[in-house]
């Protein structure tokens, strides 16, 4: 018999905690286990499935969201830490039927491969452009260094962030989805 398993309190024994926060502009209140990751709560309890689990160790960037203006890996954040916070996920980046300039730019640069890393890449790009509306290539590389794209669309990401920066400066933050598919 394993000593580790025997001596530790079981996951079964923890009681629920109530957490309130704002996600994509909406107030939410959820009951979570104290050990639950924000990643699982966003995905399973709130249905925000754009938040992807790629490694569970903060090493790949697939699950990053913007929380209180900071880019955070939700796999390394306990859900209880979200209390009182404001969270933005990919679902909240553009109104229904619209694309954010970053999304439009990623399509314009034909960067789509498997798409699994895209939510993280888009959130990291948004975080960058919010702070630095006109980033250099080096600054873009620094900002996206935590997002692994194994299909290798990296060069397109650089072009896309530059293009998105241009769109935003021109006041074009949102685009109709129908403008893209012709």
């Amino acid at each position: 018999m394993s000593e580790v398993g025997a001596s530790r309190a079981s996951w079964n024994t923890y009681r629920d905690v109530e957490v309130s926060f704002k996600v994509n502009g909406k107030e939410v209140r959820v009951r979570v286990k104290p050990y639950e990751r924000l990643l699982d709560v966003l995905r399973n309890k709130l249905g925000l499935l754009s938040v992807k689990e790629g490694c569970g160790r903060g090493e790949c960037g697939s699950c990053v969201v913007i929380m209180n203006g900071k880019l955070i890996p939700t796999c390394l954040t306990l859900a209880v830490r979200a209390e009182g916070s404001e969270i933005l996920t990919l679902e909240g980046i553009a109104p229904e039927g619209k694309l954010h300039a970053i999304q439009k730019a990623l399509l314009d640069t034909y960067s789509m491969q498997c798409g699994f890393c895209f939510p993280g890449v888009i959130m990291a790009s948004k975080y960058l452009l919010d702070k630095n509306p006109d980033p250099t290539e080096d600054e873009i590389r620094d900002a996206l260094d935590g997002n692994i794209c194994r299909c290798g669309s990296y060069l397109r990401f650089i072009k896309a962030v530059k293009l998105a920066s241009k769109y935003i400066k021109e006041g074009k933050v949102f685009f109709d989805e129908s403008e893209v598919l012709r």
Partner: peptide
């Protein structure tokens, strides 16, 4: 643009 572009870009 691929048929799945929008759904993937929207997450």
């Amino acid at each position: 643009q691929r048929w799945d572009s929008i759904e993937k870009i929207k997450g």
